[in-house]
Write a protein that binds this DNA or RNA. Sequence first.
DNA 1: AATGAATGAGGTTTCATTCAT
DNA 2: GATGAATGAAACCTCATTCAT
Lengths: 191, 191, 191, 191
Amino acid sequence: MATNKYEEITKAAVMLFEKKGYHATSVQDIADEVGLQKGSLYHYISSKEDLLMQLAHRSIQDFNTQLEEILLNSAMSNRERMHRAIEHHLQYVTKNVQLTTVLLREAFSLGADQHQVIQDLTDKYLNLWTQVIEQGIAAGEFRPVNARITALSILGSINWVYRWYREGGKLSTKEISEIYAHLFLEGIQEK
Amino acid sequence: MATNKYEEITKAAVMLFEKKGYHATSVQDIADEVGLQKGSLYHYISSKEDLLMQLAHRSIQDFNTQLEEILLNSAMSNRERMHRAIEHHLQYVTKNVQLTTVLLREAFSLGADQHQVIQDLTDKYLNLWTQVIEQGIAAGEFRPVNARITALSILGSINWVYRWYREGGKLSTKEISEIYAHLFLEGIQEK
Amino acid sequence: MATNKYEEITKAAVMLFEKKGYHATSVQDIADEVGLQKGSLYHYISSKEDLLMQLAHRSIQDFNTQLEEILLNSAMSNRERMHRAIEHHLQYVTKNVQLTTVLLREAFSLGADQHQVIQDLTDKYLNLWTQVIEQGIAAGEFRPVNARITALSILGSINWVYRWYREGGKLSTKEISEIYAHLFLEGIQEK
Amino acid sequence: MATNKYEEITKAAVMLFEKKGYHATSVQDIADEVGLQKGSLYHYISSKEDLLMQLAHRSIQDFNTQLEEILLNSAMSNRERMHRAIEHHLQYVTKNVQLTTVLLREAFSLGADQHQVIQDLTDKYLNLWTQVIEQGIAAGEFRPVNARITALSILGSINWVYRWYREGGKLSTKEISEIYAHLFLEGIQEK
DNA sequence: AATGAATGAGGTTTCATTCAT
DNA sequence: GATGAATGAAACCTCATTCAT
């Protein structure tokens, strides 16, 4: 099914990094998983850390691309944008729990330079969210909240999902999205 | 200055685990930090992992104790309880960022058994939050939301704070609390 | 000269375990002996203990195989069998003093599980000897002695040889065998 | 019951050395056993190795003393001497299995110098046995066997008993002695 | 006599990576 | 492209011993 060996290695790494953690996964483990010798892996990857980097990078890029698309759609209100952003984020997390876990839990293990690259892309993602909120406030759709803190709080909330979501649970991704969207838009207080 | 060597070791470990991560911190690093030989550390700790365990355990216990106190206070409405719980949680996180980081980021590095102990305490904490929400719903204070998912979303949000909070930032802990409390209670939507 | 690195390691280990003892021999010592880095040894062995296990196992297996062959030879009287068994045992001990020493002196250093495996094979060997004696009694060739104790006493005696035998001594293995065989068959008493 | 602390330590060491082996027994283990701190032990012993030395020394001295007494008894025939020597040796082994084990299994762990001291006393013991046999041959009581090899074979046999003897077994020490004495004097062959 | 903190050397093992074949 | 031998640094931990109190 794997179109090529690198993809295979990548999949094995995601799976193992998620299951055992980056540090606890040895290059040997990955080699075993794809049926190669340890040494042979190095025809495809330049280092274990680089493998992690590629994965984290791919994941955060996906998040950014996805959010940019939503923002570029001029037909939506900011309320709708927010709703869609939450929905897409959660969809990505739940459809790619392992990869998301690698990004959110393991990227910290990267060396300072590489980590900074991921950090910058993460900041960019945060900024896009902040922007949606600011636009919503400007348009009178949202209350005049602190946009950055609010973005951080929403993102923290929906990122956290990788920690508890398991496929085949009671609620569909769609249902979870609705709960989250409603929560952030309306709050829990009875009016 | 240190009243007790074990506390000193504990502090060094928290600091190093937060800065470099558990795996990247060697026993040598800790020994250097407290001015002991590597071997001498083992008069105080039984293993590096146990050191991590003690720290994580202490932290999650603190969280639980704190929340239980709020719940036992019968004079409050559930709305007030929620508000106070958010405030206390954030206060703990911001006053103990390093320790909280060790709990939330590094506990995963514990062996299965130890990790389960922490997990169980964490679940207990989640259940206490869920309980507040359920009581609020029963009392007509909150909308009839899915209590567990809502608890998870709020907790994820306020836990995430360890990832971006830095002492001396623009906002005080109190102000951050207000933003979070308002968000979860009222939502961001303009009425 | 070595056809195979693992054999080389094995030989070095036998030599060192015999000379210095298992505990006093470090993995470093073995590595030095074969001209490898400490870490490189682990391409060939899974642990120092396993190395000991392999050696002990090989040795006791040899003993068993050898004795079984004698027992399967139906052409012999039990007196002849006993004589041959003593001779072969002594021949193995004197031709493989180092390996025998590892088996008899160091197997105790194995962990409980591994040690039990060796113990079971040793018991099996004892049982084969007991069997020869019992058959000899049944056939009227031997006096009606306690077969098990007698087997233990003979085995103790010929095992002990590893403690004093040195190549190039006054007596040949053959001569030593004759002395032992005569002793156990006839006793020392003048008739 | 212990008349003094040193005796207590000595007993603990014998027990532990026998159970776990000299190397696997830590000074901590011994301290725990007698209810002292590790450091406090050194008021009584000069080193762990010295402790082993004292025990081995005591044991081999006992063997020698015992045998010398038998030899000094001029009233006995050499046949009787041999019988008594076997009986006393076995009695010592079975009454002091732990201590005998320490002598026979662990003395090898002593440093070269100390080990030589034990070796010399052991050689002396062997010589006493050889002497009995030689006297018996000279007196026409024994066949003209190789006295040293015969002594080694008998000693090996009765030393080996520490490997399988367990208190409360089917046979009494007396019965075991008879079997051994008979074996070496008469052999197993039916006349 | 007893403590317990501290040492420092040494032990086994793991592991990412390289490279000749 | 694949192997697998080899590296060498670093990891965690143990332990006999010392010594000031």
